[in-house]
Simulated scan of single mutants.
Amino acid sequence: MKKLIGYFLSPIHYIFFGGLLLIFHPIQWLCLKTGGYKAHKTSVDILNGLLSCTYMLLGSRARFVNNQALPGDRPIIFVANHQSMYDIPPLIWGLRKHHAKFVSKIELASGIPSISFNLKHGGAANIDRKDKKQSMGELLKLGSRMQEKNWSAVIFPEGTRSRNGEMKPFMTGGVSILLKKVPNALIVPVAINGSWKFFRHGKFPLSTFEKMSWTILAPIESAGRPAEEVLQEAENAVRKSIENQH
């Protein structure tokens, strides 16, 4: 039944989702040119808040849960599992006060209205996974911006999306490089649960009436500890959170 309803609701969702991307592309450009970083960031935050609302057009519920008292005076590295492209809007909206910048594959930085513009001009690290030198350079530059501007980062250490909800092991590389530049960064695990279900039938029809959650977990201090140890602790916390929600 969910799949059948998806044939009717998916076009409506895609029209609103795609329409928002088209409308906010020139808005982002105008905000950046006239108001600089602050205005541009505000436009991006609003866009992603609205994109998150389009999930409701599929009858689905998205909950962002943050019961942690996160500091505002130090950089944070948010470490999350990755289930679908729909992971991103709730994270941008929910973490907006932390100026969270994404570690993203470079292919997304061109050709996609609004999304590519933000990745190019919003402070993200756009890495070429086939070029280790370029990837390291992008991460180091992001680390410098985090240290200088008190920004935060969002990284998906699995390296790719899990299309069936099964977590892959976290890889240390990206977090390790960031910590070299931002040794005082706080590691905060984020458990994403259920967003993969949107695409259980592929891109069309999207599944309907799904329940999804983005849960901020207890922070982990990284100072004086190997990156591998810290990331393993974060991975364990995310796995446990997802298991407890099933």
Rank of each mutant, 00 (worst) to 15 (best):
L4T: 10
I5C: 12
I5S: 12
F8Y: 09
S10F: 07
P11V: 05
I12H: 10
H13G: 06
G19N: 10
L22V: 15
L22A: 14
L22N: 10
H25F: 11
L30A: 15
C31A: 15
L32C: 11
G36E: 14
K38A: 15
H40I: 06
K41H: 15
T42Y: 15
V44L: 13
L51F: 06
S52C: 14
S52L: 13
T54A: 13
Y55C: 11
M56W: 12
S60G: 09
V65K: 11
V65Q: 09
Q68Y: 03
A69V: 05
D73C: 02
R74M: 07
P75E: 02
I76Q: 01
I77W: 02
F78P: 01
V79P: 02
A80P: 03
A80R: 01
Q83N: 03
Q83K: 00
S84F: 00
Y86R: 01
D87F: 03
P89Q: 00
G94V: 00
G94Q: 00
G94E: 00
L95H: 00
H98N: 02
H99A: 01
K101Y: 00
F102I: 08
F102P: 02
K105N: 06
E107K: 04
A109Q: 06
S110I: 04
G111C: 03
S114H: 05
K120C: 08
G122Q: 02
G122H: 03
G123T: 07
I127S: 05
I127F: 05
D128R: 14
R129Y: 05
K130V: 08
D131I: 06
K132F: 11
Q134R: 06
M136Q: 15
L142C: 07
G143D: 04
S144N: 14
S144E: 14
R145F: 11
M146L: 07
Q147C: 09
W151A: 04
S152H: 09
S152N: 08
S152D: 09
V154Q: 04
R163I: 11
N164V: 12
M167C: 12
P169A: 10
M171P: 01
M171F: 10
L179G: 08
L179D: 05
K181C: 10
V182E: 08
V182L: 09
N184E: 15
L186G: 08
P189S: 11
V190A: 06
V190G: 05
V190P: 05
N193G: 09
N193R: 12
G194Y: 00
W196M: 01
K197I: 00
F198C: 01
F198N: 03
F199N: 07
R200A: 14
K203Q: 08
K203P: 00
S207G: 03
S207T: 02
M212Y: 01
S213P: 06
W214H: 09
I216F: 04
I216C: 09
P219C: 07
P226Y: 12
A227W: 10
A227K: 13
V230N: 12
Q232S: 13
A234S: 14
A237M: 13
A237L: 12
V238T: 13
I242R: 10
E243H: 14
N244D: 15
Q245P: 11
Q245E: 15
Q245K: 12
H246G: 15
